Simulated scan of single mutants.
Amino acid sequence: MNERHPVSQRLPVLAWASAHYALLLIFLVCVLIEGVLQGADFGLWGSPRWRGLTYQYAGFWRGLLDNWQPNYAAQPVVMFGSYGFLHGGAGHLLVNMITLISLGRLVIERVGQLRFAVIYALSLLGGAVGFAFLSTAVQPMVGASGALFGLAGVLTGWEYTARRLAREGIGPVLRVLVLLTLLNLIMYWAMGGNLAWETHLGGFLAGWLAGWWVRESNHHP
């Protein structure tokens, strides 16, 4: 038997979705891509080769900035954004999407959807630049972590600015920086060195810098 819910119970969900559609779009694209690849991995459709081919065409390959031959002419440019919508499995996706919702909504509530999208894009690009300059890996880099560390960076930067203007101590900001550093060290150890910390650093710095340009506003476009 179908259960009917009052309109008043449904509207808050719709209102939240309407106020966070930029975040939800990123979420849905990431989930859809990984869902298709998961199904292919388990033989539900397509071919198990789909994941490897997807990484081959859309992952970030450091070698393409040197003398590697791209699969298509625009790949060395496209990969600076496409890598952020791919993930290394369901666990990787789950952690990143929880972080996306948690941090993304905080940024949207402070600057609105358009500015959130700008910050996210700049952080995604910053993560790729960090990996390009600091990494020597021959494996592809995938994941939204660069952009997510960018969201952490802009929130931390805003907190730093607010405290300096209020002439308050920056102890809480320093604690966040220490915690993020420890988090990366622990993940680097747990993953046997297969952590793109360069992407995290690049994204965080890009997000912090974006906070100086994308000012806070009470208006939510």
Rank of each mutant, 00 (worst) to 15 (best):
F131Q: 06
H219Q: 12
F85T: 10
N218C: 14
P70Q: 05
N184Q: 12
L151E: 01
L37R: 08
A15N: 09
A206Q: 03
Q75Y: 02
S47M: 05
S82P: 04
G146I: 00
G88C: 13
L100I: 05
G169T: 15
N71K: 07
I26T: 08
L37I: 10
Y72F: 13
P172E: 07
A22Q: 08
L93R: 09
R49Y: 14
V176L: 12
F131E: 07
R51Y: 13
R175F: 12
A190V: 13
L201T: 06
E198Y: 06
L122C: 14
A15Y: 11
V173M: 04
M79C: 05
G171T: 15
G150E: 03
P76T: 02
A166P: 05
D66Q: 12
G130V: 00
Q75W: 03
V111P: 02
A147Q: 01
T136G: 11
T161F: 13
Q69E: 11
A132Y: 10
W212V: 10
P221S: 12
Q113Y: 05
L28F: 14
F131W: 10
W212A: 14
P221A: 13
L122N: 11
A147F: 01
A117V: 07
V7N: 09
D66W: 12
G207S: 03
I33Q: 04
V107M: 04
R115D: 11
W68P: 03
Y57A: 11
F42T: 10
T199D: 04
Y72S: 06
H219K: 12
W50C: 09
I33S: 04
L23D: 02
L103D: 07
S18K: 14
V36M: 12
G112M: 02
V77P: 02
A132R: 08
G46Y: 06
F133K: 02
L122R: 08
L124K: 01
Q75T: 00
G207E: 00
L122G: 13
S123D: 07
P12Q: 06
I101G: 01
L100R: 03
M187V: 15
V178R: 02
L28E: 05
Y120C: 03
R167S: 15
V95Y: 04
E34Q: 14
A206C: 04
Q69M: 10
A40C: 15
G130P: 01
H219S: 11
G84Y: 07
F60H: 09
A166R: 07
Y83C: 04
W61E: 04
S123W: 06
P140S: 00
R175D: 13
A74E: 08
E34L: 08
